[in-house]
Simulated scan of single mutants.
Amino acid sequence: MPAASLRLFCNRAPVARRFGLLRAVLLLVLLGGGGARAAALPEPIPAMVTQALPEAYLRGQAQMRVWGLRIYHARLWVTPAFDPQAFTATPLALELRYQRAFKGAAIAQRSIEEMQRQQPIAAPLAQRWQAALTAVFPDVQAGERLTGVYEPHQGLRFWHDQQPLAPIDDAELARRFYAIWLSPQTSAPSLRRALLGEASAP
């Protein structure tokens, strides 16, 4: 309703109706009407994260883009003892909410490539790790999530949305996997800084 028409209507309306109209206008604004946008509520911590890490809190989140294309939105939960300089020393959880479809095998292959960018991996070990990740990762569609919980000196566990996947009991693979995002040698330093809460999300 244009501002002039609203003032004319309010001046002619009885007091009770005038207050009722004002309440309706305020409600419309709060719900995002008239061009206004309601403030987004923060997403809750996933149940599997709170079960695995009762003291977990959201350290940071970031948007991963490649050539301007949105790939996934990442969120990192850590415990109070977390130290970015020794990120493999304490449990943590990383969630990736994909914004386009990917094959599980492609996610596994890309993971190994990112690990090798930081430090070479012997061919037989790389093949074994890629096979282990391929066996766990499902194909994902836009809007679906993969959540991984890192357990120091043990391995990692994954969930596809709320569905638990097979655990990987390989401490070195788990450490190298999370280094993709959290190591200073990551190929996405701005995303790392945002996940660690050191900069705003890109």
Rank of each mutant, 00 (worst) to 15 (best):
T186A: 08
A13W: 12
W67D: 10
S190V: 02
L31I: 05
V149D: 05
G68Y: 07
A39I: 13
V15H: 06
R59G: 08
E95I: 00
A40F: 03
A131S: 14
F158N: 12
E113I: 01
H160T: 00
T147P: 00
E172V: 14
A89K: 04
A179Y: 00
L191A: 02
L28C: 14
A81Y: 03
L133F: 03
Q51D: 15
R110Q: 14
T134N: 05
A199H: 00
T147A: 00
P84Y: 02
A56Q: 09
Q99M: 07
P184R: 05
D139W: 04
T79V: 15
L8E: 14
E151Q: 14
P46F: 11
I107Q: 05
I121W: 00
E55C: 05
I121R: 01
A132E: 14
D139G: 08
L146R: 01
A47Y: 07
R18S: 15
D170I: 07
Y150M: 10
Q63R: 12
I168E: 03
Q61A: 15
Q130F: 06
P84K: 00
R12Y: 04
M64Y: 12
A108W: 09
L125S: 10
Q61G: 15
F82L: 10
Q51C: 06
T90E: 12
R7V: 14
S200V: 00
F137L: 04
I107H: 04
P164T: 10
E198M: 04
A39E: 11
A179I: 00
D170P: 06
S187I: 04
H153R: 14
I107L: 15
I71E: 03
C10G: 04
M115N: 08
L92N: 02
P84V: 01
A89T: 05
L156D: 05
W159F: 12
L191F: 02
F82Q: 07
P189H: 06
L31R: 15
L41C: 06
L76F: 08
A166Y: 09
G104R: 08
W77E: 04
F177H: 10
L94T: 01
A16R: 10
A131M: 06
L156K: 05
A24V: 13
A93Q: 03
A188E: 07
S200C: 00
R128W: 08
A13C: 14
A62V: 13
L196Q: 04
R117F: 03
H73Q: 15
R100H: 08
S183T: 04
A179M: 03
P138S: 09
W67L: 15
W67R: 14
A131N: 10
P42F: 03
A142R: 04
P80E: 13
L195N: 00
R145A: 07
V136Y: 12
G34K: 08
A132T: 15
L191K: 01
Q130M: 13
I71Q: 08
P54N: 11
A4V: 06
L156R: 07
S111G: 12
F158L: 12
A123I: 08
L125Y: 07
R75K: 12
A3S: 07
L92E: 01
L21T: 05
E55N: 15
D139Q: 06
Y178K: 00
A36Y: 11
C10S: 12
Q130C: 10
E43I: 00
I168S: 02
W181M: 02
D161R: 10
